[in-house]
Structure formats: C-alpha cells, structure tokens
Design a protein around this nucleic acid. Structure first.
Length: 262
DNA sequence: ATGGTAGTTTAACTA
C-alpha cells in the first residue's frame, strides 16, 4: 500500500495539480490538508473518476482535511476527540485494509506567545492522548499530515532564525518528541536518516528557488505499521510546477497487513 | 522593522 500526505492549500485552486499528481503518483491512500472547502463543494466526481473513495471533513475558507482511498473505508471519524468546543476541521480517520489511517492538520500556532500557540499546544496534548490510546490496540496505525512541527535543526534552512517560531521552538519540538517516543516511527527519516528533506517552501522571498525549506509534513507509524514499511520519499517535483501548493507530497510504501506480520 | 506571496473572499484573515 502506498500512502501519501499532501497539504494542497485549497482544493478549488489546486484541482488540476491534484488530479495530475494522483494519476502520476498513484497513491492507494492520500491524506489531504487545507482543502479550504465545505464538504458540499469538494470536487467529488473528479476524484471518484480516478477510482478513489472519498471522505471529507471540510470547513469554510480555512483548514479542512480529506481521505482518498482506492479500497473502501470503514469506521470513519471526524474531529479530534477531547474538546467539543473545537470547531476547526483538522482531523479525519478511517480503517483501510485493516490499517487505521488518520489525516491531520496540526495548528500553525503563530504568533507566539499567544492564544494561537496555546491552541496548538492543547491540540497536541489531545493528539498525544489519542495516539497513546491507539497504540494499545497493537495494530498498524498511521498518523499522516501537516504537523506544523520542524522536528530537528536539520529540518529547517535557518535554525537560528526560526528558533522562536511556533513550528520550531523548544516546547513544540519537545511535545512532538514525547508523542514520537510513545513508539511512533517517522517513515521519511527511516528511509533517509540524514540530510535535509524539505516538504514545504514559502511562496515568499524566492524560498523555493533558494531551497529555503522546512520539513513539517510527516508520516508517523505505530510499531506494527513500521514493521510493514518498505520505502518512503518526497515528491519534490510537484513543488516546482506552475500554480503549485507551497507543500509537496510525502509518501510511504507499506506491505499489506493481511497476515500476522511481526 | 517591514515586506515579500497565495487562497479565500471581497477587507481581512491565515499561513
């Protein structure tokens, strides 16, 4: 199974790029973030025409996540548990071929300090609790998406300049590390342990041309899912196209989990 | 210290 995550930054503006990427990359499962669309306006027919089942959790103007899968999805859920007052559409999950797959768009958190950073930390605390509970099921679990977290200095072009930013400050990295240390493996860093592996380049200041990137899109695997990992990578070429998203897709290839693999 | 770009939506917010 090939699973990919892609922050598309607006499904309406990005539809041609999205369709062309799906046809080229042929992911079995795609986790999309920042669809910036309500469910009723999502271009469902175009996606289904490529052979995908589709589940969305949309919102007007901002945020919004979607799951695309060539296999049917069951036990679909929307929203991150733990706060009934949270109206932001940042989390959707489903069972796909025996694997639990969640697509997430973690809050940016800037400016910091302030209410937006507080929201980021509280969202991460709820996510930690969810991921910890999921681990106890002892089965393949995948959390893929835009984490808005730069895990280490190697994952940003200018670590000093970014040290106060909500994506990189110490508390953000520590909170992400505590989640990972529950037992979640970073698929991309398993395939590529060293060196820059950016997934985002700002539209501004020629960031793409200068390769001033960040690694903030991650595919995190439970131990049972990590056992299935064959390879992982970044579709860098997508970022260089006309009218591209400011993010580029990250993918992981996993063996099917239909047997008792240890 | 500000602005640089893009999407959604139409002045301002988010990133």
């Amino acid at each position: 199974m090939k699973l990919a995550t892609f922050n598309i930054n607006g499904v309406k503006a990005r539809l041609p790029r999205l369709l062309e990427w799906l046809e080229e990359a042929q992911p079995d499962v795609a986790c999309l973030q920042e669809i910036k669309s309500v469910d009723e306006n999502f271009p469902r027919l175009e996606i289904e025409a490529l052979g995908y089942h589709l589940e969305t959790h949309g919102q007007k103007s901002f945020n919004g996540v979607a799951l695309l899968s060539k296999s049917p999805m069951t036990d679909v859920g929307r929203g991150l548990p733990g706060d009934d007052t949270d109206e932001q559409a940042r989390f959707i999950y489903a069972d796909i071929d025996g694997i639990f797959v969640a697509c997430l768009y973690l809050p940016n958190g800037n400016p910091t300090p302030g209410p937006k950073y507080d929201y980021k930390l509280s969202w991460m605390a709820r996510f930690h609790a969810f991921a910890e509970a999921k681990l106890r099921e002892e089965r393949p679990v995948i959390f893929a998406g835009d984490y808005n977290v730069i895990p280490q200095g190697i994952d940003v072009y200018d670590p000093v300049g970014w040290q106060g930013d909500a994506l990189f400050r110490r508390q953000t990295r520590e909170t992400f590390r505590r989640f990972a240390n529950l037992g979640y493996t970073d698929a991309l860093r398993t395939a590529q342990p060293t060196g820059p592996a950016y997934t985002f380049w700002d539209y501004q200041a020629g960031a793409w041309q200068k390769d001033n990137g960040l690694r903030i899109d991650h595919i995190m695997l439970s131990p049972e899912a990590a056992n299935l990992l064959e390879s992982a990578g970044i579709d860098r070429a997508a970022r260089g196209k006309e009218k591209s998203s400011d993010h580029t897709p990250v993918w992981a290839q996993l063996r099917r989990s239909d047997r008792g693999v240890n």
